[in-house]
Simulated scan of single mutants.
Amino acid sequence: MTPQHEDGPPTGMSRREWREMQEAAAAAEPSPPPAPQSAPPSEAASLAALLGAPDARDAAAPLTILTVCTGNICRSPLAEVLLRAELEPLGVRVHSAGTHALVGHGMPEPALELAAREGVDPEVAAAHQARYLVEPLLEDADLILTMAREHRSHVVKMMPSRLRRTFTVREFARLASTLSSADARAAADAAGASPRERLAAVLRAVNDQRGLTPSSGDDDDVIDPYRRSRETYARSAAELTPALVEVERLVRDALM
């Protein structure tokens, strides 16, 4: 047998022939199997993303409710300060934004008067400054309450994954009216101890009430009082405040 050398060609073979032989041998070796690819997201995971399932990464963050109107100076800030007065002691964060916000503007005098009449600290209401609705606010929210259907559509177009946690405030109240506190607490208890999971379970139960209470459409909107009479402001508040009572009830049921 012709002797071979570890780092050189065998006797009688040129280095070029030796190199070509090595290259041919390497080419004949089978290719390694392809690296495994990540499995596509399951149908359940995709559905969870669409429905706005709670994000486990945010488990330590406070529950957040976002209220939305057009200018963010009348309806949504009034809803914000009223909800905050009731729910902030439970550790719930409430804030607001506008689809076409009058950025930096405060609440007009009639709205401030309504807030004070409902027991809101005047300094809290006077501190409000309007801001635009942006995606990070939606991403952060566990419940989004809009003042009219146009705002709900705007939210869902901006972030479709928030579909099942977005309601007009009066729509939420209409659906909640057919869900007893006992049933809401049972849904929350079945979800475990996490406040975020418990609220999400209650929101699923609220969504399940669709079709049980018919609406004409306009009944789900809160009238916009901007630049209108004090009587219109009072009418707007009369549409808003009973709906907020239902929101407060179900959030309490979820957390207690």
Rank of each mutant, 00 (worst) to 15 (best):
K157D: 11
M158T: 12
M159I: 10
P160I: 02
P160N: 04
P160D: 03
S161V: 03
S161P: 08
L163T: 12
L163W: 02
R165T: 14
R165S: 13
F167L: 02
F167N: 01
F172P: 03
R174A: 02
L175S: 01
L175V: 01
L175D: 01
A176P: 02
T178M: 08
L179Y: 05
S180N: 14
S180K: 14
S181I: 04
S181H: 09
A182W: 01
A182D: 13
D183N: 14
D183S: 15
D183P: 10
D183R: 14
D183V: 11
R185C: 06
R185L: 07
A186E: 15
A188W: 05
G192H: 04
S194N: 14
P195G: 05
R196V: 01
A201Y: 00
V202E: 00
A205S: 14
V206F: 02
V206E: 00
D208T: 06
D208S: 09
R210E: 07
G211R: 01
L212G: 06
P214N: 12
S215E: 02
S216C: 11
G217E: 07
G217D: 07
D218I: 10
D221C: 04
V222T: 12
I223Q: 11
D224F: 03
P225Y: 10
Y226H: 15
Y226I: 14
R230T: 09
R230E: 13
R230L: 07
E231C: 08
E231D: 13
E231N: 11
Y233M: 11
Y233I: 09
R235K: 15
S236I: 07
A237Y: 02
A238Q: 14
L240I: 10
P242M: 13
P242T: 09
A243F: 00
A243H: 06
V245S: 14
V245D: 15
E246D: 15
V247P: 01
V247T: 07
R249H: 06
